[in-house]
């Protein structure tokens, strides 16, 4: 099992609470690091100095303050330190253009947050099992 942290990029504190709860209910004990906007997410992943966060999974909302999710995704894919990290777009939208654009920019998966909490718990379970257990991640990119 990948035991790296999960980076949750989410500005809605309720959703943060639900996501943490949903993973806990599924006994996924990976640390969940929260970035509440796109800029903060990029500072964690691609810091100017210091140790970058190397998450086992990134859960990325699209509609975010400052730098939106799709821009974060573009930056992640553009930098070799983060280009192969698994990114699951986890968002309220089911607009076709968001789905198309997410995949075009290299999202690994697109999940619409269900309204019903129990369905969300189930989605978190599937995501956790697949991305942290079943999936074989790329080895970390060597820097410099």
């Amino acid at each position: 099992m990948s035991d790296g942290p999960i980076l949750l990029v989410e500005d809605n504190p309720d959703d943060v609470l639900f996501t943490i709860r949903a993973f806990a209910k599924n006994h996924i004990r990976n640390e969940i690091v929260v970035a509440s906007d796109g800029e903060q997410a990029l500072r964690l992943l691609l810091p100017g100095e210091g140790q970058p966060l190397h998450p086992a999974l990134i859960l990325l909302d699209i509609k975010l303050p400052k730098v939106d999710g799709l821009e974060v995704l573009r930056a992640i894919r553009d930098d070799e330190r983060t280009s192969s990290l698994p990114v699951v777009v986890l968002t309220t939208s089911s607009e076709e253009r968001d789905i198309v654009e997410s995949y075009r920019l290299g999202a690994n998966s697109f999940v619409r947050k269900p309204v019903v909490f129990e369905e969300f718990v189930e989605a978190a379970n599937v995501l956790g099992v697949y991305w942290l257990l079943v999936n074989q991640p790329a080895p970390p990119a060597r820097n410099g």
């Binding site: 809605n12 309220t92 909490f117």
Partner: peptide, 22 residues
């Protein structure tokens, strides 16, 4: 408008649902 509805109207609904469940 539709985009905003799909995004902004569903979010509070999720909160109402989620906290009821909690």
């Amino acid at each position: 408008f539709a985009y905003s509805v799909s995004h902004d109207l569903r979010a509070p609904l999720r909160s109402v649902e989620g906290f009821s469940q909690i």
